[in-house]
Design a protein around this nucleic acid. Structure first.
Lengths: 79, 79
DNA sequence: TCTTGACTTGTCAAATATGACAAGTATGAA
DNA sequence: TTCATACTTGTCATATTTGACAAGTCAAGA
């Protein structure tokens, strides 16, 4: 699986969960004590940036889901 | 949960799985088609670096586990 | 149309992840 | 002790993430 695909799937996970919970990006930022920016959330959701694990962790906190849930990418069959 | 704790847990996950599978860090690098370095694997396992999701994905590929498994951090009770 | 809210995108500066290499540490075997 | 293997750590250059801000897009209402 290509880098861009991985980033896209992670971003879709985040966006899907966020919408399911009825949050806006601004809501998320408000829920995170550590600083984070809607610009970055947007970029991550769109798969335009290769986020660090800590940033994803902060987002998972705001979404109230385990980090592993937003990192749920199908295990590739072939490398 | 502090940033350093998150990084440490992810690193421990990787190291634990790697040892369970009997791989050395050099083995891992050899299994990953995309370029990655033992220096970086070591730093990630030690929690000294805030790895990007794509790097963790590459490691998960080499370890033959889902990305979500190495990202398994207990959901924090309190923010 | 105009406005508002939500999101996207461009740019910038600062911080830092990454790959590469060298050197150091630790362990175990001969 | 010596050697080999595995890992850690320091440093460097490069690339990129991140937060911040501004501006742009888009859809839904009034």
């Amino acid at each position: 699986m290509k880098k861009s695909e991985v980033l896209k799937i992670v971003g879709q996970n985040i966006k899907r969960i966020r919408l399911e919970k009825g949050f806006t990006q601004v809501d998320l930022v408000g829920k995170i004590e550590a600083r984070i920016d809607t610009t970055n959330i947007s970029r991550i959701e769109k798969g335009r940036t290769n986020a660090t694990i800590h940033t994803l962790y902060k987002i998972s906190q705001a979404l109230e889901v385990p980090l592993s849930e937003i990192c749920s990418v199908n295990i590739s069959k072939k490398v």
